[in-house]
Structure formats: C-alpha cells, structure tokens
Design a protein around this nucleic acid. Sequence first.
DNA 1: AAGCCAATAT
DNA 2: GATATTGGCT
Length: 548
Amino acid sequence: MVDGNEFSYPRTAETFPHGLRVLVVDDDLTWLKIIERMLMKCFYQVTICCLAKEALDILRERRDGFDIVISDVNMPDMDGFKLLEYVGLEMDLPVIMMSVDGETSRVMKGIQHGACDYLLKPIRMKELKNIWQHVVRKKKNELKDIQGLKGLENIQVARSGISNGFDDGYFFCARSMDFGKKRKGYESKHRDNEVVDLSAVKKSRVVWTVELHQKFVKTVNHIGLDKIGPKKILDLMNVPWLTRENVASHLQKYRLYLSRLQKEDDLKTSFSGTRQSDLSSKEQVAADMGSDKISFKKFDADSCTSGFPESSVIQNTSESGGIIFLPMLTTTDDNFEIQNTSSISESNLIRTCGVPAANYMALSSFVPSQYSLSRNGQGIETKQEIRPRLEMKNDLSHHQYPNVQNQTLPNIVQFAPTIYQTPITEIDNPPHVEFKIPYSNRNLPKQSPERVEYELCPVQSDSSHRTCFYSEPYTRSSWSMKDEILEHILVSDIDSLNHLACLNGSDLLPEDPFLTSLELLNTDFCDCSNSELSTDYSPDLYDGLLFM
DNA sequence: AAGCCAATAT
DNA sequence: GATATTGGCT
C-alpha cells in the first residue's frame, strides 16, 4: 500500500468534498499513479493499493477510514468483483468499478454486484470529481432506510448508528435534510421529552377507503347531515380503530366537498334552469354512495386521485357521455364495472378510480388511459378504451412500434425521458437536456455521450444485490432542489445505462403488452443535438443488450 | 409548485 | 363541535 498523502485535507462541512477518503485499487501502477494524481487535484485524500487482497486488509483494518473505493476490475490476485462483494458485505462502502473495456456483460456484472458507478479508462477528471456524490447519496439512503424502520429504535440511536466515523459535520448534506421539520410550538413544549417523542411510532394515517367512506355516508344519511356530529358518527359507524378526530376531519372534508358541489350545482341551474334529476346533487351523491350502482373491484385507495370516488375523474359530461380518465394504465374490464348504468344521471356521477398494478408504477402513471363513454341504442353506456400513444417530445411520433400488431394508438401523451449531460455538480445551473430516449426506436445510437446522467432511482436494497434500479421516465420540471439532484445516479457510459434500463424493463414491465411494445429494453438514443459529442458508438457493444 | 389529505391546533 | 392551520405527500 502506498499512502499518497502526507497530509490530510480538512474534512469539514465547508470544504466538502475536500478530504474525501478514497481508496484506489489497481494492479497497474501507471493507472494507479494517474488516478491518484487526479484525485489529489480534487483535494481528495487518496490511498492507493495494487492488490485487491491488500485493499481488503486495509479496509478491514481501518474500518471507517474510507468514504469510497475505486477498484479496477481485472486484477491478478483477486477479481474486482470479488472485492466489490466483500466490501459490500463487510463495510458497505460505495464502490466504483473501472476497466479499460466497456464490455457490456462486465458493466452489467459490476452494477449487479452493487457497484455504484462504472468508469471506463481513461477516466476523466470530471468523473473523479463527481464521486463524492455517491458517498452522499449512500449516506442519504442509509438515513432513509433507518428512518424507514420507524418505531422501536429511536432516532437518537439511529443517528449515532450511521454516524460512525463521519460524525464530524462532514456529511452535512445527508444530516440536515431529514430531521428538520417539526410542528410549530412542538419543540418548546416538549423539549424535555424529546427522546421519547422522537422515538414514538408515527401514527398511521387513516385511509378513507370507498368502503369506509360508504359506511360514513350511510351513517350521515341515516341521521341527517345537519344534526350529526363526529362523535355520533363514530359511535354509529362502530369501527374500533377509528377516532373521533378521524371522523371529524373527514366530516370537515365531506362538508367542504358538498358545499363545493352545491356551488357548482347552483351555477349550472342558473345557467340552464333545467335539471335531469330532481334530486339535488348533494342527495344524489349520498344516494350513490349508498347504492351499488358502481362497484369497484380491486380497488386501491392509493390510486384514487380524489378522496371521494364520486368527485371523480369524469372530465366531460356532455350529452354523449364523458371521458373517464384513469390515472393508471389499465387494460382490462375488471378494473371497474358499471352496473345498472341507465340510472346514472348525466350531470355527474360516473366515476371510477384507477387500479394500479404496482408493476406499472413508474411508466404508466404518466400514460393515463382514456375511456370514452357512449350510449348505445338502449341508453346503456359502453366504454371503449382509447390507448394513449407515446410520443417523443421532439416529434418522433412517426416511429414504429415493432412487434406490435393491430395496435390502435390514437391519443398522444408526452413521454420523453431525458438524459442530462451536464455534470450534476453544477446544480446552480440547471443542466440542459441533451438527449431524449425514444423507447420505440431500434436504431442504434449515433453517438455516445461522454457521460450520461439518467434519472434513476434506487429501489430498496436486498441482501443479494445492494442496489437495483428502475428508471423514472419523466423530465423533472425543477432542478432547483439540491437533494433531488443527488438522487440521480451517475452512469458513466451507455452500457450501464442500458443495463439499468434492462433491469428496469424486466423488473417493472413484465406483462403488459403495450408497455413491452415500447421496447423499453431496447432503449436507444437519438436527437443527439449536441455537437460536442462525437465519439462513435460501437454497435457491437450494443448487441448484447438486445437480448430480450 | 400547487393542491390534497388527514392530523392537529384553536 | 366547528373551523383553521399544519405538515406530509404527490
């Protein structure tokens, strides 16, 4: 081992990331020296080492002596991946892999084994400069995980638990973000009990499911809205875990909702003077809630965009029926059923909630299905699904969807994941969008960006793979938030990006034919509008990715 | 960034 | 009990 630094850079919040403790492992002394130089230029505290085994020893010996490890893949004594595995198991430091070739399988292997980045030699200064972000991100995630445990262990413990060796103000980013907020007045009143209070299990929020709400409405109707209070409702509802406060809160919302409805109603009546139903909408709503006109199968409260199902998703209530927007991409009829549709009045009251198949999460939430309702001869409404079509923002709508036949794709939904090329260190200047990924194009990319930063979000780790990913295919509207930026994972080359896309594809979108048709797995690049990027991309590398 | 939601304060 | 405000969340 050669310790590159005779002195230490100060490790303070102010100077961060100066003094970042980096261990570099490479059997090639030349590379080792070059990288050491570069890292030192970043004011990092570098330790170099040409044997993987030795590196492991160092790490074991000085357990908390490093913030991040950069390791070559090919080494005589121990495979870089092996090292990665050990590090992951024993100290859970962020590890960056590097190698001269960008062979797909290798990159994939690296990422799969939990590498947080994969650098291709020659490594650029910019890439090394950015490595601190992996450290911060990891810290932040750990913090989240610990908080996620909620209960039992109090946060005081948790805090010291993760701070081993870093509790010096260095990781201000991770620290300051999550513990900030408290209710006004809370702190002063309860300071003495702080430890107790912090450890208190967060009260779980009551979710007013359709069933629960129906019960609520029934009760209210039974007594009459004007005479009833939360206490009485609570008693009559007879739901053991519900509190008076819960009911009061819900009642408040319900009343607000009704009054809003009333206003709309008044407005409408003053316009047309005619009404389809002689029930006021208020009564109609209550009636509807109590009846079984609309049943929700597989209802999932989380997906319901509005608290009251009847407040709904109907967008257009004109003569011919409306369009129901489902918040999620759904494919089958069993998401909702309309029974006895003839009794549904035109003025409101057709409603449904989307049913999220968890799998579709990331993608489909941006691709709402639309259903148009029309009346047939018997006055029965039928629904017809209109498939939204994905459209590239930069007018690539002519692209074909290979492997998909007879797909009608009328409506257009914007869908343009973006890749940012600007280093995320420059958070003050919002990065420019350099690339867009059309999910449907089989063309090989024309060019390879020097560095790709793609919005990827770590999903919770499991024991075998410390990190797995899915992509969030959307553009962020705001780049102002520092910690949001930090969420982004750095991907140094297209291969790893594509690998992540593959993971994403197989993890997220196993079945839906429409989504598969998007060719997510064959993520390609186009619109290389940036002339700076001139490196030709080798199709060979790409082939390995088209395996599905 | 705005709006919704349930919880909490008044 | 009613209403206003808050903080979390999307």
